[in-house]
């Protein structure tokens, strides 16, 4: 089986599948912006200071802080 990690641990260039979002309020907010369980995310950029990160889902770009990305559990996919 694929291994689960926090989105915050994903590296630039990784493809991941979103498995669950722990924080309920956050998950509603992310969901409204297109980031939800089952979607495939591509890690596009990590900001120069290591935070925030920019991911793309379904063709649109979203940036979020590592502190929020830590609440998102993802599984790594093959590139």
């Amino acid at each position: 089986m694929s291994n689960f990690i926090h989105l915050s641990e994903a590296k630039k260039g990784d493809f991941v599948r979103i498995e669950s979002i722990d924080n309920e309020k956050l998950s509603v907010q992310l969901l409204c912006m297109g980031c939800m369980v089952g979607e495939i995310a591509h890690i596009e950029q990590i900001a120069p200071l290591g935070d925030p990160m920019m991911i793309s889902i379904d063709g649109s770009l979203l940036s979020l802080r590592k502190s929020d990305a830590r609440e998102v559990i993802v599984s790594q996919l093959k590139k």
């Binding site: 956050l26 992310l30 925030p52 649109s60 770009l61 979203l62 979020l64 802080r65 929020d68």
Partner: peptide, 9 residues
């Protein structure tokens, strides 16, 4: 505090 922002093309 959050920074969740859509990045336009």
């Amino acid at each position: 505090s959050h920074f969740i922002m859509e990045m336009p093309i």
